[in-house]
Every structure is written in structure tokens, then in C-alpha cells.
Simulated scan of single mutants.
Amino acid sequence: MRIIAGAYKGSKLVAPGGSNTRPTSDRVKESLFSMLDGYGVLQAANVLDLFAGSGGLGFEAMSRGAAEVDFVDSAGASARAVEANAAKLGIDHSTRIHSSDVVSFLSSQRVPKQHASAQLQSEGHSGGTHSGEGEHGEGLDAVLDGEVLETRSDLDDGDGRIFDLVFMDPPYPLGEDAVTQILGRLSGLLDMESIVVVERASRAPEPTMPAALEVFRSKTFGETALYFVQLKGKPEEVSDSAAANESA
């Protein structure tokens, strides 16, 4: 596993032990970051890498100009691998490592006041036609150790954090309803220029978006599908510059 371009090109990354992580392939990564470069989202970006594993996507973003990255993963081995990689690259000061499940981390983030209404609306979205059954349909409780998404209680007048770019590469068995609910919680931490990249199995259905979000581009690479997500209402000329659905 290595960084493929930018300031740290060629640097090898420490991978967490065990077989629970699924690194994004170089082919997918190269295409993904080419698209992100085209959107102009990488330079000086505040990045969030959810289900981070070794941190490969977050570190690739930093190599290409991102300012800082928050890495989130509940596995201790992943947190240790990210810490080792940050130290190896000499960018400890620009990274935050959260050994936490994604739900708990997102629950701890203060949502900016202007996003409060949209946040509560998106969390109330039921997940469309997904029934919670089948290979990709387990509920949030079953996959995330009983952590249930509830209405936030910490919305206040303080300034919350905004992420310019979010990578979300959950385990493929994570249920579609759970993915939708996590995206709903995440939507309050974005602005109109933010991009969320969701990686899923190409055989799985396209993620159902909460009320505040929409998929503006998708691309498949064999067994991997990438979905590019933004807040609804982004200027039409920006959204129209992206192909709606592509395959490779």
C-alpha cells in the first residue's frame, strides 16, 4: 500500500493487522483523485476519513494538498496504523486520530446553527425502499454494536466544524439503512462546496440519500462503486459539469 502522487508519492503505508480492512486499489484511487482534482476540492481542504483503515485515502489527500485530516476508525489496529503512518510522513501536527465508531464521532461534532433544520429533517428520513433485510440490509444496531442514531441534543449557537471532503468507505456488509442514516448525520457538517465520496460494492444498490443530500456522479470499477455526494441546491453550472453515471 503506497501513496501514488503528490508530495509523498511512493511512500509506503503501514497496514493494520488482520483481514478486516479493504484498501482502495491504486486504479480506483488514481481515478478518484483525478476527479477530485478536477473539482478543485483538495487544496487546503479539511478532510474527514471515515472507516479509515490504514488512512490511505486521507494521506493521499494530504499528499495532494489537503490541509488536515480527521481519521475515524473503531479498530485499535487501524488507529495505531494511522498514527504510525502520520509519524512516518512527518504530518502528525496535521492529523487527528479518533479511535471511535463513526456514529459516536459524528454525534460528538457540533453542527453549525444554519444546518440544524436540515440535519433534523435528514435524520428523520426512513431510508426509502430498503427494508433492512438481505446481505446489505442489516440495521444499524446489528452492525454498530447497538449504537442507535437519535436526534441530536447539542445543537447550539456555537460555530461547528465543516468538512470540505469526506471519504466514507464502510464495510460492505453494513446495511443500506445504516449508510443512509450516517449520511444524514454527516450532512450537517458540510457546506455547499463539500463533497462526500462513498465507496460500496458494485453489486449493492446505490445508497439511498437522506433528504439533504444527492448523488451527482457515480463510477464503477469492477467490484467497486464510487458515489459522489453533495448537499442539494449546489449551483447548477457546477453540478452539470459532472457526468451523472459512468462505468469503467
Rank of each mutant, 00 (worst) to 15 (best):
A201S: 13
D154Y: 02
V143F: 13
S122F: 04
L213V: 08
Q109Y: 00
S117E: 07
E223Y: 12
V197T: 05
K12A: 05
L155K: 04
A77H: 14
A248F: 14
G65A: 09
G137A: 05
V111K: 02
V215W: 13
E176Y: 09
G233W: 12
T24S: 00
Y39T: 06
A5R: 00
H98K: 06
E199V: 02
G56P: 06
T24F: 00
V196R: 03
E147V: 10
A66F: 05
V72W: 00
S126M: 12
E138K: 11
V72H: 02
D49S: 05
L140D: 06
S218K: 15
P173L: 00
A79F: 01
D240T: 08
A5V: 00
V166A: 10
D177F: 08
E193M: 10
A201G: 07
F163I: 09
E206K: 12
L50Y: 05
R200D: 09
L226V: 07
L190C: 09
R161Y: 08
G38S: 05
K88Y: 11
N85G: 07
L165S: 11
Q230G: 15
Y39P: 01
P171H: 09
F216C: 09
S131G: 13
G17M: 04
A67V: 10
L144Q: 11
S202M: 06
S63L: 02
Y172T: 03
S11F: 04
L226E: 12
T129D: 14
V196P: 02
L36A: 01
G128C: 07
S108D: 04
L174K: 03
V148M: 09
S94C: 14
E236F: 07
E199D: 02
G58D: 04
A61G: 11
L50N: 01
M168V: 02
L36S: 01
A212D: 02
D37W: 05
A118G: 08
G18C: 05
S117L: 03
H125C: 07
K219R: 14
V179D: 11
D191A: 13
L13M: 03
D240P: 00
S25H: 00
A201M: 06
E60R: 01
A52W: 02
F71T: 02
V111Q: 04
S194P: 10
L189S: 11
A77R: 13
G10S: 03
P210A: 03
G18P: 04
L48Y: 08
S107H: 08
R96K: 07
G222R: 02
E150C: 13
F163Q: 13
F33L: 01
E150S: 15
Q119S: 10
L186T: 02
G233P: 14
A225M: 10
K232S: 06
E214V: 07
G55E: 08
A248R: 12
V198S: 07
P112H: 11
K113S: 12
L189C: 10
I97W: 00
F228V: 05
V28G: 00
G160R: 08
A87W: 10
R110V: 11
L183M: 06
G134S: 06
S74T: 13
M1H: 07
V103E: 05
L190T: 09
L226A: 10
A5G: 00
A86G: 14
V197A: 06
L165E: 13
H98S: 03
R161K: 13
S34H: 03
G40F: 09
